[in-house]
């Protein structure tokens, strides 16, 4: 993929609080990069929490964080030694 100048995409690190999840599947369905998937394991309440499939794809859009009705998933910016100028992405 080519970028203008030195711009580079942001990378996110996903944190899931599994025991607060109620397994509604909103984050899995609406992640634009298909980073998440439903897991087979059970959490403390007996729901299936999501699991991270390929975190490298995450672009720090924070959609999962906003859509989660249980406040149980959030994204932080991955710290990397970046060469390029920081791109302006959402939000």
């Amino acid at each position: 993929m080519k970028y203008f100048g030195d711009l580079k995409e942001k990378k996110g690190e996903i944190h899931i609080i599994k025991d607060r999840c109620k397994g509604c599947g909103f984050c899995v369905e609406y992640c634009p990069k298909d980073v998440l998937e439903m897991s087979e394991e059970f959490n403390i309440k007996g729901y299936h929490p999501p699991r991270i499939k390929n975190e490298d794809e995450c672009l720090y859009c924070q959609l999962c964080e906003t859509i989660c009705p249980e406040f149980s998933i959030y994204v932080t910016l991955k710290k990397e030694e970046e060469k390029g100028e920081k791109g302006e992405s959402r939000p």
């Binding site: 944190h15 109620k22 509604c24 909103f26 859509i67 009705p69 406040f71 959030y74």
Partner: peptide
């Protein structure tokens, strides 16, 4: 911890809304 926790009374979470309810989304 999630940044939204600054905004919530965490002693009352988890909330009572059903799985699949959209109210939590509106709160966020």
């Amino acid at each position: 911890r999630p940044p939204i926790e600054d905004f919530l009374r965490m002693d009352r979470i988890p909330h009572i809304w059903c799985p699949g309810c959209g109210i939590g989304t509106v709160v966020t």
